[in-house]
Amino acid sequence: MVDVFSGDLAWYFAGPALGLLIVGLFALVNQPLGASGAYVQTASMAKRRSGVVTWRVWYFIGIFVGGSIVTGVLGSTAEFRPGYDALTDVFPLPVVVLMVFAGATLLGYGAAVAGGCTSGHGMCGTAQRSPASVTVTATFMATAIATTFVLRLLTGGEL
């Protein structure tokens, strides 16, 4: 049986499924299946700006709903908890909160500067064979792996 709801679906099901979603959104709307833009539009709506791309806000809500369905409604992996298991094993919770907040701020800023994130550039951009997206993706993969190894060194191999 293919277990969709335990969080360990095989990559050869999950990857192509995501690929088809990317193709489907392009075929219907001519737009990438990216996420940082959905944050921008949702923030704009919260600020009551004009010119909000409303469907991106629905898409933002949809990501939350889809996650809830798989982890909670149909699956059994959703529960109220802090998350970040490997990180909370190494650092006390207040440090984890600071790290997550600082890291997330940095990645949000970086996504805005680069014009996209892992989904927009990493998946949809490379699938379009955009040289800019390939550049962004190669850069963030390199700095992310390097940063992970620095963190590993700093924690004496614990993280």
């Binding site: 890291g103 940095l106 962004v136 993706t137 963030f140 700095t143 940063t147």
Partner: peptide
Amino acid sequence: GGALFGVGWAIA
């Protein structure tokens, strides 16, 4: 942007 994103992604 990609470089900053990668550092933040690894930390967060």
